[in-house]
Design a protein around this nucleic acid. Structure first.
Lengths: 139, 139
DNA sequence: TAGAAACAAACAATTGTTTTCCTTTACATC
DNA sequence: GATGTAAAGGAAAACAATTGTTTGTTTCTA
């Protein structure tokens, strides 16, 4: 995996730097869909000189290379996902966590839409909102 | 319709002002899902003293009263819709317009998700992306 | 290992949105 | 209809997320 991203960066003419590897690996290693801020704080202890701007710029590159997708789950900041496959997400309105929705087949729904709209479809994002199991217990 | 929103405002203890009526009606009269900025510019000629802050404050109230819903179609600003029913939207990646998706039945998909997730579902947003008919012709 | 190209970090600028604070307005009561 | 008061409007400043710009540093080729 590390070899992969290293190679990919080189192929696209980007330099391979520890910061870029760290940011990508932080994203690839979690399912928590962190924001730029969250990545920054996670890496801060290991890379004390890392700046938020570097996180944003690296994500920009990863986005360009199709190694991350951007989520916009109705919050005031973006979240990022190293799983670039289109898949639905769900956000807990109580604690704010964002999870993948597993085992859901969206293709039928997408096909239906593709057949009905005059647009030429290129992608989609599905966001569900609710209360996660942990927060349900709290109440 | 106008009587309706006037009454609703009063019932909730809000004052009825020309600005509030104008903002709600601008939203109710269009299917273009305008942003705060767009509403502001539309009303500017009629209410020269109207400020962007008033637009935001009024939208906040309308949101609270469930008279508008907020869209977050992956742009850098929010859009608003006086149709508060949950329904899928599609955005043109070329010109930026946001349309409703008509005649699409999302209930089967939602039911599927409700059955699979441990979350207690409260809502959802579906965003599709593509190229609108007008922009397809341009290319 | 030298040197050019690309980079990271600090800092500043932008942009959408919210807050502040003072003036004006809506509206219940007289 | 006049009036008092709480709420609303407006301008500007504040804010927060993100994006440029600059400058010294690092990577990697030759």
């Amino acid at each position: 995996m590390e070899k992969c991203i290293t190679t990919l960066l080189r192929e696209q003419g980007f330099k391979v730097t520890p910061q870029r590897l760290a940011i990508y690996q932080a994203l690839a290693a979690t399912k928590s869909h962190p924001s730029a801020e969250m990545i920054f704080h996670e890496l801060q202890p290991v890379y004390p000189t890392m700046s938020l701007a570097t996180v944003y710029k690296t994500i920009e590159i990863l986005k360009e290379m199709n190694l991350v997708q951007v989520l916009n789950a109705g919050e005031d900041s973006f979240r990022y996902d190293a799983n670039t496959e289109s898949h639905p997400h769900i956000r807990c309105l109580s604690c704010g966590r964002v999870d993948d929705l597993e085992g859901v087949d969206e293709s039928v729904f997408i096909d239906q839409v593709a057949g009905k709209t005059p647009y030429r479809l290129t992608g989609q994002q599905f966001y569900f909102y609710g209360v996660c199991p942990a927060c349900q217990q709290k109440t």
